[in-house]
């Protein structure tokens, strides 16, 4: 259990966050939603591990837990 990394794992967090927001610039809500969906799928494939993916889904469905 708890294979999901919740401690910082991104070397330059501010830079990543800026890029993420910038990727959505100028997009309509629908276009942004489509980009997010593609991004989730690509990242999920990169992770691959079914346990981590399940934990991530669970963790994000109940963000306060």
């Amino acid at each position: 259990m708890a294979k999901l990394v919740t401690a910082l794992n991104i070397a330059a967090p501010d830079e990543f966050y800026e890029k993420l927001i910038r990727a959505h610039e100028g997009l309509s809500d629908d276009e942004s939603a489509a980009l997010n969906a593609r991004l989730i799928l690509v990242l999920a494939n990169q992770i691959g591990d079914a346990e981590i993916l399940a934990e991530a889904l669970e963790a994000c469905r109940t963000p306060a837990a």
Partner: peptide, 20 residues
């Protein structure tokens, strides 16, 4: 709507990314 967005995201990716 979200299910539809994911479905079309899969189709968009499938053209270039074999995993999709």
């Amino acid at each position: 709507k979200t299910s539809h967005i994911f479905r079309n995201a899969v189709l968009d990716l499938a053209e270039h990314m074999p995993f999709a």
